[in-house]
Nucleic acid binder design. Sequence first.
RNA 1: GCAUGGGUGGCAGAGUAGCUAUGCAGCGGACUGCAAAUCCGCGGACCUGGGUGCAAAUCCCGGCCUGUGCUCCA
Length: 476
Amino acid sequence: MALRLYDTRSRSKRILETLVEGEVGIYVCGITPYSPSHIGHARQAIAFDIIVRWLRKSGFLVNHITNFTDIDDKIIRIANEENIDFLDVANRNIDDYFEVMDLLNVNRADSYPRVTETIPEIIDMIAKLIENGNAYSSHDGVYFEINTAPEKYGQLTGQTLEMVREGAGGRVSETGTGKKNHRDFALWKIAKPGEPYWSSPWGDGRPGWHIECSVMSLQHLGEKFDIHGGGSDLMFPHHEAEIFQSECCLNHDPVVQYWIHNGMINVDGEKMSKSLGNFWTIRDAISKVHPLELRYCLINAPYRQPVEFNDVMLQDSSSHYRKLLATYGEALSNYGKTNWKNSSFLQQAELEFSNGMNDDFNTRVAIVEVQTVVKYLREKLDSNLEDEISACVSWLSEFAGKVLGILPDDEVIRKNILDVENEKMKIHDQVMDLIEQRQIARNNKDWDNADQIRDKLNHIGVVVEDSPNGPIWKLK
RNA sequence: GCAUGGGUGGCAGAGUAGCUAUGCAGCGGACUGCAAAUCCGCGGACCUGGGUGCAAAUCCCGGCCUGUGCUCCA
């Protein structure tokens, strides 16, 4: 089954045909680092992480670029409030981003270009746009003139020039007084007193919001590239502005072959936002559950769907995930891995998994297959079928681990199990003593006493399970 | 208002025409002194009104509800 992905511009799933056979260039709009990362950032990063992992798994050589917009109005405002350099604000939030993304098992992109390190190239592109007649300079900045390429309007959102004219109403004055038309957007903003600036042919200032992505994608992926991704809230105006800039600068279209957009996170049915007070940072979430449990939670819905997020769902995901990991860990530590390709059951599971992923990266379908294999593994564990168990471990390691990224490294799992064993060793004698007492009570059918001892064990964090082979105990 | 998605069982969420989605929860059972864990089984859904089809959750048209965008946003 060929890999198909939903392209926002054509509003349909299209088979992936890359510009260079066997290679994919993908640019994903990154964050503006003005505050610690929130779970919306996590969702996006995880979604594209899995997309890139799957492309690589499918044999493509992938070049994945994600940028940082490390200069913007909000960063400047926060820097002024704290009386520090704007780059300090950006850097501390970028550091935070990398830290939490590592915890979430998000692979690094191949490059993370930053606006502040791309100023000369940005100035070049603006100059080219002026030269081509698509942009003009005025007293407060340089603007892209929409009317020079009206046919490019609405390619991602279906909106027409007229709609925006009506919708925008009296916003002209707020969005740049030097504009000829309120729909024009800034390429270069002249600095106001106290703002950081770079010098340019049009005056000291800084880049507008959209230009950096056109420049960086060109710089890293060339005049045409395969996939451009980002949050669905960036379709308009950001990505449409990019289409104007890139295509008018390069004099050809399309520059981007496939546009893909991830859905937003909703809390209580509404988009998560600071103003609504329903805001979760990644650190908020991972203070409640393990980062991989959060990752698991965020890929429960396919990447394009809005995903509902709240405490209950986080806890649900967490408990589902723990069951999965417990089974995997038990099998891994006791049996190890072997080639899974001899198992027809696992071959079928691979096929279903792949069909799901090839259908616009449907992680929901992929997870169902993972659950199916875990269930199968559970059966084999109960009947001690060593070869099948090892094959399952190996399959899960490959698909749940390497593709979905929801399993910790084997060494981490083994170490955790070891740590738990060590913890158990510390209280081993005490527990065995109590269990022995309880067994005596049980043999005497003294259930009250037996249950009291069980409560006592529970109190020190030990759960006793009476298996057919006698009592086993574990830490809560 | 315009644009663009979506409306599936208690919850989450697949499924684009005929075949049990799946997981959690619920109910029943096995096992157990009772539990726990595990296993087996069961019930329960396709917003609404039309249309096309032998057959529609699935395609077409209308309505209703709802998310998002039209302003910074992942």
